[in-house]
Amino acid sequence: MTGHQAYTGIPRWLYGLAALAALVVVLPLAAMAARVNWANFLPLVTSEPALAALGLSLRTSVASAGLCVVLGVPLAVVLARGRFPLSGLLRSLVLLPLVLPPVVGGIALLYTFGRQGLLGGTLEVLGLRIAFSTTAVILAQTFVALPFLVVSLEGALRTGGQRYEAVAATLGASPGTVFRRVTVPLVLPGLASGAVLSFARSLGEFGATLTFAGSLQGVTRTLPLEIYLQRETDPDAAVALSLVLVAVAVAVVALAYRRPARPAGNKATTRPTAAAGPGGGVT
């Protein structure tokens, strides 16, 4: 908690607009919550298909978040620290899933891992069938969630600066040691929030999954797909399950942003102590 007394006041009208912005998000959620059939809420969210969908969603999202960490950490480090031509282009490409409609991602995945896809023939020969399997769900989720981890982590790496890494290197640490002992601990909060965000994005994945993985209870029908299907015949069930997803999302966001905002400058962690000047300095 710093800076309770602001130097300058905020114009009054900003509060009005800010309230409006908050309403844009909160009002529809509140309207949905108002429609929940509380009398049947428990039976609706604990029905067999609902539990199967919730379980599948949680399992696949954990797996996807794990894959995002394994693949995204090296990518973020290379993007933030590496020096190579066209790194800007690579960054733009990697972040593309953030702005692409997920259904486009699904189509792209289909033409990559599908039976007639780029790798499909090879995979089929190896006895691997991806389409209509839980693996397809995880691939779709990883595709859409990876940028969240990369953006969070790359931001943390860049604002963290390279002073400690430079010092460690001058003290004789190898690049591998520097990465493990200095870089990773420094950006741990950024990594954690990136992982949580990619988990959350995976949990909400819908379009790419529907297009690429199909929809079968217990195998590929995640919670968002179950909601979409229930809406056809049982709006009460759809609303109840939506509320479950909202609750999980709220918990996840709270977890990701529990720390006092994104650390500006060097406050990310206190472990390496050094004279930390404001503003990152020049390295």
Binding site: L110, G114, R115, Q116, A131, F132, L210, A213, G214, S215, L216, Q217, T220, R221, L225, Y228, L229, E232
Partner: peptide, 20 residues
């Protein structure tokens, strides 16, 4: 025992057209 139960008939058709 379908491998997938889709939400719309066009989704079913799409999976046949794509050869999945």
């Amino acid at each position: 025992r379908p491998v997938s139960e889709e939400n719309s008939v066009t989704d079913v058709l799409g999976k046949v057209i794509s050869g999945e």
